[in-house]
Design a protein around this nucleic acid. Structure first.
Length: 437
RNA sequence: GUGCCUAUGGUGUAAUGGUUAGCACGAGGCCUUGUGGAGGCUUUAGUCCCGGUUCGAAUCCGGGUAGGCACCCCA
């Protein structure tokens, strides 16, 4: 705490976290659910280094992400290097590298930590762990549907009910077609407009309306307001028939989702998403809890990302879900299970020096039958050792003293019930095998 | 990068400008040393840093540092 000396601070580096046992249990729990969910859809785990050549992000990730918000440095060989700010380009790179031999579709996932240099605040730190799920090689919207289904299943497996979250779905191509075919505006204006819509929910209605009028003519503004107010694809089609093509895709996705009993997916033309490389369908999962009403995570289609590599383009769709926002969701909805440590047996020693040999021998037997076993070498009195065994969540306690040493028998005590059983040294493993079934 | 807020033992907190800086939790020890969850006793440990105002500062002021929140932007 004090800065008056030159000792090193015990604080973690700004915006990154230390994971103490209880913290890591939570993170591991999320990772376990993520892994279970995506593997149940047949996705395979991949991984890459946290270091990447900066050029990987310069091309497609957008200036902010690759520039100001990046951990970027020049290495001793004058190479521009970055701590990965996201995982998708790495995975795309890996797919591109093997594109000639991979058999598509490829379903991959990763749970990397990614870094971004920015001011930390609620739901956003400088480092977080992020589930990345990507499906490569399928252009049809059936792939988009699958990815959204995976996201939905993830939420369900975390314990969320249908009305705990909403899936907003839109399409980059729908919006860009609208801009070119209906508003007839150029690319610069398109980008400005996209940015404005992206923050629509954060500013009040009047300033949004005003900002739109600054950018567009009266007729264009009117068209835009109409476009944004429609939440039904059919109505959108009637109003803007020239948007039929992207709307058909959205329709088939929404219909397939409904057929899979996913009842909380809605069409939302207001959804844009910031990442530069999205090309088609985009979606975002929103928390409906009043205390945590925010975007949790999202994804979309990025068919052009791989053109930065010297390979034939591979269509791709995926999403990334971070542990920080998901943890906020779990908190808000009180979905965390009891995450106790996994200590099965605590072996207490009357006299550490004298009895630890026997204690570790017993512990060895127990580990062979997959019992997590700890030997208490604190030298504290036996009452305190028992107290600590209980506090640390041990299921069983074995006390070892002279009697046990002589008789080669031990008494196994179940802490929850207080029941005791005396067994011979040779039968200890069997005792737990029988208990476990 | 901009703005706002905050800073007291390990953690959470209390203290009209005047107390010995209080309490709870945690951690250590003990309650006659071979049986836990309760309780009792006890130990440990704090005003972020530098300066100013004042007889007197945790408290007021300035600067620094750190953290939080919002903007920006978004994985």
């Amino acid at each position: 705490m004090s800065n008056s000396n030159n000792k090193i601070s015990t604080d973690a580096y700004k915006g990154v976290r230390d994971f103490y046992p209880e913290d890591l249990r939570r993170r591991r729990y999320l990772e376990k659910i993520m892994q279970k969910t995506v593997e149940s859809f047949g996705y395979e785990a991949v991984d890459a280094s946290i270091l990447e050549p900066a050029a990987l992000y310069d091309a497609k990730s957008g200036e902010e992400l690759a520039g100001e918000q990046s951990y970027r440095f020049t290495d001793r060989g004058d190479r521009e290097v970055m701590l990965r700010p996201e995982m998708t380009p790495s995975i795309a790179r890996m797919v591109a590298a093997q594109a000639k031999t991979l058999s598509f579709p490829v379903r991959w996932y990763a749970i990397p930590n990614v870094f971004r240099y920015e001011r930390p605040q609620r739901g956003r730190l400088r480092e977080h762990w992020q589930l990345n799920v990507d499906l490569f090689g399928i252009e049809d919207s059936i792939a988009d549907t699958e990815i959204i289904s995976v996201a939905h299943e993830l939420m369900k497996n975390l314990g969320a009910a249908e009305d705990d979250f909403v899936i907003h779905i839109s399409s980059r191509s729908l919006f860009s077609d609208f801009c070119t075919d209906v508003l007839k505006i150029d690319d610069d204006l398109y980008a400005d407009l996209a940015g404005l819509i992206d923050k629509k929910t954060k500013i009040d209605k009047d300033s949004f309306t005003g900002a739109v009028h600054d950018l567009l003519s009266e007729d264009q503004a009117e068209g835009l307001f109409t476009y944004l107010s429609i939440t039904d694809t059919e109505q959108m089609n009637e109003t803007f028939p020239m948007l039929a093509k992207p709307l058909n895709k959205l329709d088939s996705i929404l219909e397939s989702l409904a057929n899979r009993n996913i009842g909380n997916a809605v069409f939302d033309p207001n959804l844009i998403r910031g990442i530069a490389y999205y090309t088609g369908v985009v979606f975002e999962i929103f928390d409906t809890h009043p205390q945590n009403n925010r975007s949790l995570f999202g994804g979309g289609r990025y068919d052009d990302l791989m053109e930065v590599f010297d390979v034939d383009p591979v269509p791709a769709v995926g999403f990334g879900a971070g542990d920080v926002t998901l943890a906020d969701f779990m908190d808000a909805h009180e979905l965390w299970p009891d995450l106790a440590s996994h200590l099965d047996v605590d072996i207490c020693l009357i006299d550490t020096k004298k009895h630890s040999g026997f204690g570790y021998e017993i512990a060895g037997f127990l580990r062979q039958v997959k019992m997590n076993t700890r030997v208490n070498i604190s030298g504290k009195n036996i009452g305190t050792q028992l107290k600590n065994a209980d506090k640390d969540g041990a299921n069983y306690v074995i006390v070892i003293g002279d009697d046990e040493l002589e008789s080669e028998k031990v008494t196994i005590k179940e802490l929850s019930s207080g029941e005791e059983a005396t067994v011979k040294k040779a039968d200890i493993a069997d005792f737990f095998i029988n208990e476990e079934e």
